[in-house]
Design a protein around this nucleic acid. Sequence first.
RNA 1: GCGAGAGUGGCGGAACCUGGCAGACGCGCUGGACUUAGGAUCCAGUGCCCGAAAGGGCGUGGGAGUUCAAAUCUCCCCUCUCGCACCA
Length: 817
Amino acid sequence: MSRRYDASKIEPRWVAAWEAEGLYRASEEPGDERPRFYALDMFPYPSGDLHMGHAEAFSGGDAVARYRALRGDNVLHPIGWDAFGLPAENAAIKRGAAPPTWTYANIEQQAATFKRLGMSFDWSRRLQSCDPEYYRWTQWLFLRFFAKGLAYRKASPVNWCPTDATVLANEQVVQGACERCGSMVERRDLTQWFFKITDYAQRLLDDVDTLVEWPERVLTMQRNWIGRSEGAEVTFTIAETGEEMTVFTTRPDTLWGATFFVLAVEHPAVRGLAELGGTWAQVEPLVRRAEQTSLVDREAADTKEGVFLGVHAVNPVNGARIPCFAAPYVLMGYGTGAIMAVPAHDQRDFDFARRHGVPVRAVIQPEGETLDGDTMTEAYAGEGVIVNSGPFDGRPTPDSIGEVIAWLESEGRGHGAINFRLRDWLLSRQRYWGAPIPIVHCPTCGEVAVPDDQLPVRLPEDVDFTPGGDSPLARHPTWKYVACPSCGGDAVRDTDTMDTFVDSSWYFFRYCSPGYQQGPFRTEDVNRWMPVGQYTGGVEHAILHLLYSRFFTKVLFDLGMVGFTEPFPRLMNQGQVIYDGASMSKSKGNIVEPMPIVERWGADTMRLTILFAGPFEDDIDWKLIAGDADKRPGVHAWLGRVFAAVGGAVARGDAAEPDALVRRTHRTIKGVTDDMDRFRFNTAISKLMVLTNEMRSALDAGAGALSAARALTVMLAPLAPFAAEELWRVELGQATSVHRASWPTFDPALIVEDTVTLVVQVDGKVRDKVPVASDASEEDAVAIARASAGAQRALEGHEVVKVIARPPKLVNFVVKN
RNA sequence: GCGAGAGUGGCGGAACCUGGCAGACGCGCUGGACUUAGGAUCCAGUGCCCGAAAGGGCGUGGGAGUUCAAAUCUCCCCUCUCGCACCA
């Protein structure tokens, strides 16, 4: 190890000093005119100590926060914990530790680690979503939604995890299994609370277009999740009963090609129709099986499976009588749960038709071809000319879809419709460790909101976590029995708690008004700090957390509580830290912990290792970049050279700095500024390394390097905050923290080199490189190029037909042939 | 299947936005220096091929195109990663 640089001696000292100085507190001074910058990191879940993924995310987020402060912004960089959730309860069951005990112990552990890492958090704004003072306002917000009709209860088929004994949102079911424990999810009919996010589907979709600073893939995921489809609703009639049944279709231009009709297996009309058609005996097994599989379990379903119901539907456009089926490939959760099937022009319908012997009727003919329904081998979904379709024969499609819809409307047989894939947000959980839903069920008054002045509805502490049966709150002997806030009669509390995504949908507002007692936040505080300047976190939250937070923001805007409709205009997703090509996990035994590296080499080295490894959004393979844990990391050696160079510059005092170093310093300032603005930490670090090398050359030559040393130290501060502070205050003898210094500025005149390398090409191939004055004229440049040895050689015996000159960078001689 | 992104030395990556010296910076490796030998440090070299050298040829997944000039722009293909996936 270098004799001069020993992180273990430097870093703990500054942790203490920074805390004593209150260095990272966001300023609320009325006279503070600096621009505000809200640097937000996704708040962590306190499951054990911080892992490498946290180290990466927070190294990037901290670099942004520190950089903005050095650029002169008044920075808000808060921290808190997303502290409710199932793992705390599982720990209670497994180890007997009460959820709060387990949770707060982990939070303290993570907080200590954050401090050791030197994160520039404003600790005075710290929050934990499981604090009663926090969930009081989660409940308060729920009641605002409730009052607006945006929180409602309905009986609904839900995903039920038998292991966790709770309801799951569709989003928490992955390939039919519980996202958390992996058990196969079942379907149950229960009464649950929902947020009416579907009311906001169009706005959520429209505003995706305004999020130009988000990663494209996240925008795509948001759009897909919302899933807007344009088409028409068309009403068919059941021939045997006269019952009307509406379907949604994006292809009303193929209505005349419908040759059968399909209901979702769970469709409420299925049993009645099957009994009428005399087919219930065949249909019943399908229905039974559907009840036992999750709502989103699509793996098990055979796309061609289905049963004829024995009844028929009448196509409203041509009166055709077509058979009705029940089939799992039609989903109850999308559209109306029933479809018209057009096998000629939809592959799924085609496969089903061939299996079940239903006729195929082509109504779109591609140019230059004639499709025959009897001989087609696959559906034709492309464009063409409409045939066999009454008034629309000969019309082109898809251009005629609008005309078909207009016709349907004028005939009263259907109308244009827009359908979304997005479902309402199922937010109730039959769990203990969450914010209780602040509703009282009264036999007289119904669902009654707990009055605001009685919030929070606190969680009881004497709770039985034995698995199975009712949730711990429902099972509690006394907790739920209360007087109705409205009539005073006997009533019971709602015993469900809220999905933790509710907690995380508003925490960034709370940071703006820490400790505020009259509401979740002060509107003027939020409008002063928000929207967020930069949001940093994992791409695993690309859909749910971000969608829900956007939804909350729009609702709060509508309530007049915030003055903007998008909370996070700029989003940055860090890549994952993996090991040897695989994600780190306990079962693989390949976990690399951040703290041992910090203890051995220092937090700065860990940060630099991560940030220098590659683009922030890319995955990092720790095995490839750090290799052997005992090997001294390259960035640590660099920090040693930085200390040597800065120390050497100080020793050399005011000695003149060579022109090359001065220019290098200014170019580095420009380059690093550009890089930091674009979060290109890896190239910023490489430029600082180049500057370090140039300083060393200058010092070796007996020259000075003091202004370079100062610039280098400030630019290092966002990336290696401890080393920069040590250099600044100890080596450079500054009185105040480097983290309160000003970002260096550059002189554009010094960016330009006075001599540059002129590239000499012949026919576009590099034949020589010669130094030339940067202000050389075209004439001079061509002359110098022509005289170069490389050009002489290559031009010998050739006739130059054209000269392309881009002085002073390049001259290209084009020769005959 | 649909959508998005990516393919550059032994390795991580840079240059792509804005066409003009490919391989910055670092790791690794090779040779050397200094040493009471280190978890070092310093110096030199390091894309591939031919050559003693000078120099030359080749080179950014493959193929075409545009251009005086393509890692960069356009089109086609291949491979990989991620996301979505019966959405009517």
